[in-house]
């Protein structure tokens, strides 16, 4: 079995259709469930493109494609735009159903891994840390929140928009898209930059949140570093947020009983 190549054919996706698909992609996880995962969301997002299949809306090809696209699917929510673009193109090009099914199954993992690395592991923490640095430097609530939302969503929305176009252009050849530096090398670079921002932001956040003098901040930072290293050494076996919840629960008791 061979995969189609990039820019394989003359099919077009009008602006209005693309806009509808993009808006729908913003709700792609709305019907997330443990059976079809985001399969129903994929069908919902791709539906405007399927109206252009022979027979039009409600036609045989339309209904068969919609049924196919509603089956189990799971990937990173932002990168589903690539999948939706590619699958819409495959349906438009009349790719055999069994090949579409095989592709649909195969791209779940890669689009999940690439999106998780780029967004959850690097871009989101990076933007949060920049906003935390702004907070530490004395930014007002509006500036801190707008810094985060503006920066993050510039990347987020651009990724969704670009993904739909790139997926449509690539068709079933999305391996070339996933192989772009954006997904291969940028995540590690962004993560590395984030660590630098974190080193700068954390002491400032500690200072502003506690009002402590530099020496006090140094003590808190040293203890946090030791605690962080210890937690890291557990290799993910203990979720930090749960540990924090129990520690703070115990601290509640101490706060009420000791004084």
């Amino acid at each position: 079995m061979t995969a189609p190549t990039l820019d394989a054919g003359p099919a077009t996706l009008p602006f209005a259709t693309r806009a509808r698909m993009l808006l729908r992609l913003l709700t792609v996880q709305a019907s997330y469930n443990y059976e079809s995962m985001i399969g129903n969301g994929i069908a919902f997002a791709i539906e405007p493109a399927l109206r252009r299949l022979p027979g039009g809306r409600g036609g045989e090809a339309y209904r068969a494609a919609l049924a196919r696209q509603s089956r189990y699917f799971n990937a990173h929510p932002y990168l589903t735009s690539i999948a939706v673009g590619a699958l819409a193109r495959a349906e438009a090009d009349g790719v055999p159903p069994e090949q579409i099914e095989r592709f649909r199954t195969a791209c779940c993992g890669p689009l999940g891994a690439s999106g998780d690395r780029l967004v959850w592991v690097s871009w989101l923490p990076c933007c949060a840390l920049v906003a935390l640095a702004a907070f530490g430097l004395g930014a007002s609530p509006a500036i801190a929140v707008l810094t985060f939302l503006g920066l993050y969503n510039a990347g987020h929305l651009a990724l969704r928009f670009w993904g739909l176009i790139a997926g449509w252009r690539a068709g079933l050849g999305v391996a070339a898209v996933i192989g772009l530096p954006l997904f291969r090398t940028w995540p590690d670079r962004i993560a590395l930059a984030s660590v630098g921002v974190a080193g700068f932001a954390l002491p400032l956040v500690m200072a502003r949140a506690t009002g402590a003098a530099p020496v006090g901040v140094a003590v808190i930072a040293a203890l946090a570093l030791a605690g962080g290293v210890a937690l890291h050494e557990l290799h993910g076996r203990l979720a930090g947020w749960r540990a924090a919840m129990w520690l703070l629960g115990a601290f509640m008791l101490a706060g009420v009983l000791l004084g």
Binding site: V121, M206, A221, V229, L231
Partner: peptide, 20 residues
Amino acid sequence: VAVPVCVAAAVGVAALLRMS
């Protein structure tokens, strides 16, 4: 204030160590 900030920062440090 120091204890909750320290606890939260420790979780953040662990996350950054994993990320990098």
